Amino acid sequence: MDFSNAARELYGVDPDEFVETRTRLVREAKKAGDAALAKRIGGLRRPTVSAWAVNLLARAAAGDLGRLLDVGDELRAAWGAGGGGLGELEGRRARSVDGLLREAESLAAGAGHPLRDQALREVEDTLQAATVDAEVAAEVRAGTLARPRSHTGFVPAGFPVAPEGGEPRTRPKKEREEKGGKAGAKDKPGEAGKPRRRAESGRPSGRAAERDRTARDRTARDRTARDGAARARRAAALRERAAEAERALAEREAEAASARDAADRASAEVGRLRHELDRAAAARDAAVRKAERAGQARDRADDAARRARRKAADAGGDARGR
């Protein structure tokens, strides 16, 4: 057992089983004589619900997640190359993130941990950050997140401000020389086609700031739309579950009514059988009494016959004596 495999196993279990699994892995590492590995595993923290949901995606939706991370690679490459094709990549990213959010919501609900709005936002933030930051992308791909991730700002860290329309905004050298000979602070000489970076003060130029605001507004609108869609899906799911519960209740009530009817019929049958049993018992008692009376009559007839025979015998003896 090594640390990577132990971490992947640990972050793949249900959050309720995390502590128990971690204890087992620490015990196994100690048993193998690797105290350092046991200490590293013991230091792993239980994931938040949102981080666990992203880890679920890394296992159950690895293909879709990999395609999103590939889009992130293309986005970072496009930023580095001057911004060409960003619109199409942004659209692919938005669609991929939306699909993965639905998948995460379904997987988490199926595992008994439905995602609330805050957790869904954290899942989305983590997926967006993974398309901007290669280190976050590696964590997401490994499926061993303990906490959600986020990236502040629209432009990836370390990348220049995207030029308008994907074309460089630096003026040709000849034009700069005609207007002053030396390039100003905002137009430092450089390789042709190299995108202008943020001003040394750390603030973007007015046009760049406006593009950033536009991009952030678009991202906010997309997020609002996705939040609304997610709420609508949850509401629809709740309505469906309520309808299913009502159908199940109606079925149980029908089964209960049928059971009551069957019980009533069984009770009536028991009553009928008891009545017949009582009648049979009465008939048996009457037959016993009749048999007893017949026996008594037979006994009386036998007694009468014996008396008659004795009387006849006595009469015959008297006649012989005379």
Rank of each mutant, 00 (worst) to 15 (best):
G72T: 02
E240Y: 07
R279W: 13
L107E: 07
E251F: 02
R196C: 05
R234I: 08
A256H: 09
P204F: 05
G66W: 02
G317S: 10
E191S: 08
V123F: 02
S267V: 11
G180S: 03
G165Q: 03
V161K: 06
L249S: 12
R300C: 01
L101Q: 04
A319N: 07
A78R: 05
G91Q: 06
R197G: 14
R176L: 12
A257P: 03
S106Y: 12
K31N: 15
I41N: 01
D314K: 14
A315R: 12
R67W: 07
G190E: 03
A7S: 08
S106Q: 11
R102K: 10
K173S: 15
G143T: 03
A183S: 12
A282W: 06
E164T: 14
Q118K: 13
A263T: 08
D133R: 02
A81E: 11
A287T: 09
G181K: 06
A157M: 03
R221V: 11
R300T: 14
A294K: 10
A254T: 06
A29W: 05
N55F: 00
R213S: 13
R22S: 04
G12E: 05
V140G: 00
A235R: 15
A130L: 00
T131A: 05
G84S: 13
G72R: 00
R169H: 08
A294H: 06
D125W: 13
P47S: 02
A282S: 09
Q118E: 14
A225E: 13
R284W: 13
E255T: 11
K188R: 15
E210T: 10
G295H: 14
L68W: 04
R272Q: 09
T131Y: 00
A248V: 04
R252L: 10
A248P: 00
E122L: 07
L145R: 01
A291T: 09
A301S: 12
A199G: 05
R22M: 05
L25P: 00
E200S: 14
L69S: 00
E240D: 11
E255P: 01
E177H: 14
A53T: 04
R306Q: 13
E210R: 15
G295K: 11
E124A: 09
A266L: 15
A250S: 08
A235Q: 12
R260K: 10
K31A: 14
E124M: 06
L277A: 14
P195E: 01
T152V: 14
A283E: 08
A308S: 09
R309Q: 14
D302W: 14
A250T: 06
P168M: 03
I41T: 03
A232K: 07
Y11E: 00
R322I: 06
D117H: 06
F18W: 06
A35R: 15
V270W: 11
T224N: 08
E17S: 14
F154D: 07
R197V: 14
E191C: 06
L65H: 00
A157T: 08
